[in-house]
Design a binder for these strands. Structure first.
Lengths: 167, 167
DNA sequence: CTAATCTGGATGTGTATTATCCAGAATATG
DNA sequence: CATATTCTGGATAATACACATCCAGATTAG
């Protein structure tokens, strides 16, 4: 009966955010392979690796092949925003798809780009900017600080799990 | 090569927003059938009708069956926000899908609802609230006023097109 | 040299979005 | 009252996309 749907970002965003956050607890210089990062949350390794590759392309992670290789943060946690991670996985395209239906409307002209001229598209873009601004204002370091305030065991738990997985 | 995707809302949102905006130009009391609303932008009538039904269920439009029937706004344009229309089509679910992967992590517990406990999920929700707030702050009347400032021909064009379609 | 690991392309699978059609109900008009 | 018009909602089909796997090739530690 209903066609109601949900604008959803891919689950990979969740994987990427948690994985990046965990990597802030790895002593710098040490790389973590896909297999260990996947086991951390029981994620499918091959597919998680695709997302890790996207994070490397975005300059958020760096990768090293070979034994003792894997992934590590490419920048300090203070310099990685939630928006950086979201954009790396989801792309920077707008959530409101302006198909420029005004072209077919009265007074519509084929030479006008209604993605810019349309007031509705502008309003939707404006709202998305507010969303991006919020995400850009929060770094992995901010998130980590809040986590440690609310769940003091997290650093120990995380490091122990990594130790076990890398053992 | 890439798995980069785009969080996208359905195209129906664009159809619904433009259609509702056009309906603000119809003299109240008059209903416009699906066929006319679809021709306005050369949209598929049967599918547009599904979206119109969703707008009726949301209390944004009211519908009348029979000859001279169709759809009209159920409230004044000042009382219909962009968020109302977006929610009617897209639903009110969150765009960030928290799959609670923390359950599988160190110290993860099956009895905790990580959609609330997870700091990352909270930050994503916070950003979405900023988006919703922007959309809730803009009414169809606001949009119409901005349209008329920038494109003074719009009221005449819209009414003429409706007159032609309603014959 | 060998084993470990990343990279990126090819491919498969299932779900969601897009779209159509039809039977049934409601109603204006003559 | 008969008829044509229009909405409603269910069934169904086509297409696109998200999710997932696998493999060959490149890189590097030991």
């Amino acid at each position: 009966m209903c066609i109601i749907q949900n604008m959803r970002m891919s689950q990979g965003v969740e994987w990427a955010l948690h994985t990046c956050l965990n990597l802030t607890y790895v002593e710098s210089g040490q790389a973590v392979p896909t297999a260990a990062l996947a086991k951390f949350y029981a994620l499918p390794p091959a597919y998680l690796n695709k997302h890790l590759q996207a994070l490397v392309r975005a300059g958020i992670l760096s990768s090293t092949p070979g034994p003792r290789g894997g992934f590590r943060l490419a920048r300090r946690p203070e310099a990685i925003s939630l928006l950086d991670v979201v954009t790396a996985i989801e792309g920077s395209g707008e959530a409101f798809p302006c198909d420029q239906i005004l072209r077919e409307g009265p007074g519509g002209r084929p030479d006008v780009d209604y993605r810019h001229a349309c007031v509705i598209a502008g309003a939707m873009r404006h709202a998305e900017l507010a969303w991006r601004r919020e995400l850009a204002g929060r770094s992995l370091a901010d998130i980590r600080a809040e986590v440690e305030t609310r769940y003091p065991d997290t650093p120990r738990n995380t490091r122990e799990r990594f130790a076990a997985l890398l053992g």
